[in-house]
Design a protein around this nucleic acid. Sequence first.
DNA 1: GCTTTTCCCATGGCATCCCATATTGGCCCA
DNA 2: TGGGCCAATATGGGATGCCATGGGAAAAGC
Lengths: 169, 169
Amino acid sequence: MNRFVSTFTNKIDAKGRVSIPAPFRAVLERDGYAHGSVGGVYCYPSLDAPALDAGGERLAKKIDGLLSGLPDYSDERDELSVALYGDVQVLSLDGDGRIGLPESLRAHAGLTTQVTFVGLGDKFQMWEPGRFAKRRERAREKVQHTRKLFSAGNRHASSEEGGDEGARG
Amino acid sequence: MNRFVSTFTNKIDAKGRVSIPAPFRAVLERDGYAHGSVGGVYCYPSLDAPALDAGGERLAKKIDGLLSGLPDYSDERDELSVALYGDVQVLSLDGDGRIGLPESLRAHAGLTTQVTFVGLGDKFQMWEPGRFAKRRERAREKVQHTRKLFSAGNRHASSEEGGDEGARG
DNA sequence: GCTTTTCCCATGGCATCCCATATTGGCCCA
DNA sequence: TGGGCCAATATGGGATGCCATGGGAAAAGC
């Protein structure tokens, strides 16, 4: 597997450590860790959500790609650079696949005792479980909405709602 | 055969495992498993039915297709990703063609002792047998209704209907 | 010297792997 | 055409390995 998928919830222990779900670790290994050697994960506060974004080498390349599209020394590029790179931390994995979460990152996501890992394909996010539940609910409604729009001009009365196209349903 | 067709009902054993019907396994093998290696099936809660959607690589590509239109790192994409990837589980098949159903998925579909597998072409659904029976009943009524309208000026209705069901156990 | 982090090991639960069995359906042969 | 043999499948159970989690000890930083 090459993508981060599904969600897992793990505990933060007394030392502030948390296990990266094994399937995600597997993806990171294939992807190439952030920092060549033993194991490192890029991690930064999500720009538009109370969560943390994280990933491996592919994520880093994507960020680079975004920036390379903007002219050097432009204000826009500087701002984006700061936003994207400024708060990035390289979290190293210990021998058991755990990372330690710095206080600044924990604060941004409101993490206290548990972390919900959410696979988003090229990256994954870390959420406080309660907040994530709400976010997921919103996301579902949105998908359902767009799906209705999508199938509105598309419906050939297939009798069963599950029989039509679209990813879900 | 390249599509999932007909329905089968199998048991959930004490460990929460259930056999994928052999014909569906055959389709998955041709389709390409979700996970290159031994066997993996994409599975997620249906948005608008108390059932689970599942499929192989083709289904995964469809999900990707929905996202590929959106720009990287947009809020919109993240939100959609949550709904599409976040709820997906990659269920691995054991050597005997069985999968284990996580509690969260079982809960959504109300699965307890048996699972009805329903082929829908590119994917298949997993239902609690009782709920599926009701759903199918409604679907038939609907079909008959539309057929009457349809065949009012155009009769070739073969009237053959109940020829499905490959249940066992 | 004290606190904080990193490494290593222990453990319990869960998931996976493997093997056994029975029942079904198909095939061959009489 | 009928009977019996064989292959495939679904299902059950035991064992084993992985993984998340906790804790102690060593190393590094303040």
